[in-house]
Design a protein around this nucleic acid. Structure first.
Lengths: 152, 152
DNA sequence: ATCAAAAATGAAAACGATTTCCATTTACAA
DNA sequence: TTGTAAATGGAAATCGTTTTCATTTTTGAT
């Protein structure tokens, strides 16, 4: 990882700047102390409530893009049309078990796809570069809350 | 499976009618002869080109929703904001290896998540009800096409 | 410190897939 | 045939995200 502050020298020529700009730092701070997944809007409102001159929504989006490219943040797609973000250990990623009832999520401690990359490669001659994986269902509490009362 | 035509009697009270309406039949026909994944728009244009009075886009969306509920069609999310659809064996589903270069996709013959449901259940006490899984990378041809020439 | 160029920023407009509204048409049981 | 529920289509509305573009801030060289 080669993360540098906006004040450092950078010779990256990637699709976009790989520096931590002022806005990106603020976004990262929000994500740092949140363990829930946050949408861009969530982050934006959080900043609105605590900053004197909060970054605009556009900047939040751009910052998230940079942070994702830096490998500090991952974007998660639950298929509901709203992307969420969360901090990850640099360069790592993980997937979630999302409760359809209470909407809480826990993350898997290992990636099911990574384990299978080799066999996919061997079987399909396909070079794995990325993947989406999210699992939906009922968490333990919601299963119990549901059992006695009946369905729904 | 309990699929019935629009002319059959139905006493389903589901969130929405589980009959095969005229529009849904046309949509299904398009999907039947396409092995590519199709977006709602794709299906709509296909119908425009061959029907005298093709269903409107709204009807295409509604039909797809029914067909998915009936288990005849699955919707696939590649995370690019456009949902695609394809026929499946009734009640089944599958996942894809999507080539990032040529955009073709092949589907996995077995579901990696289903195999793991039990262990997820055991380990996380989580009742699996559904999931999203798509794998991105390079297909064999594109790997070869890339090797000699260099990157991109 | 000063200056020009590059990068970052914000507000508003644009986008685009999907959904909602609502008035009209069609299907079908009686 | 007729009344009612379901289906349909077109337009408008949604809504997260991206683009545009003018302004401000940062940066590196002088």
């Amino acid at each position: 990882m080669n993360v540098q502050s906006s004040h450092g020298h950078s010779h990256n020529k990637g699709a976009q700047s790989l520096r931590l700009t002022k806005g990106a730092k603020k976004v990262l701070e929000v994500l740092e102390r949140t363990d829930e997944l946050s949408s861009a809007q969530d982050i934006h409102s959080a900043l609105r409530n605590e900053e004197d001159s909060p970054p605009g929504l556009t900047t939040v989006y751009r910052s998230l893009e940079s942070l994702v490219q830096l490998g500090l943040v991952q974007s998660v797609d639950f298929g509901d049309g709203e992307r969420r973000y969360e901090m990850v250990k640099p360069g790592e990623h993980h997937h979630h078990l999302v409760c359809e009832k209470c909407r809480n999520s826990v993350h898997l401690d290992q990636c099911l796809v990574q384990q299978l990359e080799e066999s996919i490669q061997a079987k399909y001659k396909f070079e794995v570069r990325g993947h989406i994986l999210e699992i939906f269902g009922l968490c333990e509490q919601c299963q119990q809350a549901m059992a006695p009362a009946g369905k729904k």
